[in-house]
């Protein structure tokens, strides 16, 4: 699998913010995704194209409206490539611990 487009897409904080928004609420239109953002509609649209090309965003058409969905399959492929069978549970335990300890400072 060519992972370069995935890493390139994830390297940008604005694009990660868009994925966060879809993680909170899946299936949004471009207009909905733009709400409350300082980015221009054009910039958001460009970011979405890159995310789509990296297969991190999947698109479903509702009439003439395009709905955007977070597609975490490439991220699962990355995790499965480097996290071994017996490490998974331990890695998850550490991530959970970190989240628990930091939850006062930061929103999970």
């Amino acid at each position: 699998m060519d992972m370069d487009p995935v890493f390139r897409a994830l390297a940008d904080p604005s694009r990660r913010a868009l994925l966060d928004r879809l993680h909170t609420e899946n299936g949004q239109t471009l207009g909905e995704l733009c709400e409350g953002l300082t980015m221009s509609r054009q910039a958001v649209s460009k970011h979405l194209v890159l995310l789509e090309e990296a297969n991190l965003v999947a698109v479903v058409w509702r009439g003439r409206e395009k709905l955007h969905y977070l597609n975490p399959v490439p991220i699962a492929e990355i995790a499965d490539r480097w996290i071994g069978k017996f490490e998974r549970a331990r890695v998850k335990a550490l991530v959970d611990l970190k989240r628990e300890l930091e939850s006062d400072d930061e929103k999970a």
Partner: peptide
């Protein structure tokens, strides 16, 4: 669940090796 299942399906069909479940 689905992202891991689909990643495993892809791995099985392309490399012959599916993913194994965490212990």
């Amino acid at each position: 669940g689905w992202p891991r299942i689909l990643s495993s399906l892809k791995s099985m069909l392309e490399t012959g090796a599916p993913l194994t479940r965490a212990a």
